[in-house]
Structure formats: C-alpha cells, structure tokens
Simulated scan of single mutants.
Amino acid sequence: MWWVLGVVVLAAIFSAYLGWTAQRVERVHARAQSAERALDSHLLRRAAAAAVVAEHLESVELYAAARLALDAEPDERESAENDLTRQLQGVELDPVDPAARALIVSSRRVVLARQVHTDLVRDALTARQRKLVRVLRLPGRYPRPRYFDIVEPVMPPLPSPAPAPASEAMPVQAV
C-alpha cells in the first residue's frame, strides 16, 4: 500500500516539475519575442531620427541608408541597419542640435535593447537545449529565437546639463 502512495507522490512531483518547466520555457520565449519587438521599435526610431538628421545635413547617402533601414524586409534588416550604422559613423553630429540629440539618444537605446534581446535569446536557446524540453517538445508553438547581429553604433557624448545656480540649490540641513 505504501508503494502506491509513493508512486502517486512521485508522479505528482514529476508533473509539477513538468508544469514549472513548461511555464518557464513559455515565459522565456514570450520575453524574447517582446524584446525583439522592442528592439525593432528602437531601430525604427533610430532610422527615422537619422532621416531627419540627413535632411538637416542634406546628406543623400545617410538619407538613403535611413530609408532602406525603414523599408527593409525582415531578412534584409540586419544588413540595412549595419549600412545605416556605417553611414552614421561618418557623420559629424552636433549634440546641441535637437534632431542630432534625438538620434544620439535613440542610438543608445538601440544598443541597450540589443543587449537585452541578446540575453533573452540566449536564455531561450538554453532552455530549448534541455533534454526534457526537447523530448516533450515544450516550445512547440514558439519559433526558434534568433540573434540580431548589428554593428554597435558609436555616438558622441551628450553635453551634461549646466549646474544649478547657487541661489536655486537646496540648502543642506543638519540632521
């Protein structure tokens, strides 16, 4: 009689572990897809900001690269973004100009979004490689996540805000 109870307990523990594993695989894939959408939106913002800067600078090559990045198909996206990054590295940006400032900020956000995306794709691929996950085909409805390899944009530093005048500074109180 005790062995039946032991088998039932082991089956319950195993099914709880399977449920937890399936939920983890689903959650990490959903997060990877969300990070991919966030990266895509940041890339679109950067391309749009680059198009505005190109119009201000009257740079035909930069504008063409920005338009190609905006209109690229998913399988051509990496090369279009790399071309845009190379064009941006050849342009002298004035951090005081609002359009250039928006481009610098959006480029920095692209770098951050790409790092988050890369980390989540790595986690999803690691979760997929577990033997139990492969045998039971737990990530079944999710496509295999892919890394997005682009050249890291190098942008000039933004000027730091001017310090507040002494009259506006908060007085320090002794505690």
Rank of each mutant, 00 (worst) to 15 (best):
T85D: 05
R114I: 02
N82R: 09
A47I: 00
L70V: 07
P157A: 09
A65I: 01
F14P: 01
E58M: 11
A47H: 02
R37D: 11
V116K: 05
A38G: 03
A16T: 14
R122Q: 13
E55K: 12
L84G: 05
S167A: 14
G6R: 12
G140C: 06
V133G: 06
R46F: 01
D83C: 03
V135A: 13
V53G: 07
Y142L: 00
G19S: 09
L44K: 10
E26Y: 11
R101T: 02
A166W: 00
H42S: 03
R134T: 03
R24C: 02
A22F: 06
V91N: 06
K131T: 15
P143L: 05
P153D: 00
W3G: 04
E78Y: 11
L93W: 07
V4M: 14
H42T: 06
R46V: 01
P156F: 04
A113W: 00
H117K: 02
R128V: 04
V52R: 11
E73D: 14
L70E: 09
V175K: 12
E152C: 04
R137V: 03
S41D: 10
I13P: 05
L84F: 01
P163T: 07
A162Q: 12
W3A: 13
A50K: 07
I13Q: 10
P143R: 05
Q173C: 10
V172L: 13
R108M: 13
R37F: 09
A80S: 07
L43C: 02
A54T: 00
V121M: 03
S107F: 02
L5H: 12
A35S: 14
L112R: 14
R128E: 14
E78G: 08
S167L: 12
L120M: 07
R77P: 01
D94G: 00
A66Q: 00
A47G: 06
V96E: 15
A72E: 08
H56E: 15
A47E: 02
V175E: 11
L44S: 13
Q89V: 01
A64H: 11
L84N: 02
P159Q: 03
S107G: 15
A48R: 12
R77Y: 08
D149N: 09
A113E: 10
P95F: 10
V105H: 04
S15T: 14
P95W: 10
A22R: 14
L120A: 06
R128T: 03
N82Q: 10
A30M: 13
P143W: 02
A65N: 02
Y17E: 13
G6D: 11
A124P: 01
S79I: 10
D40G: 11
S41M: 09
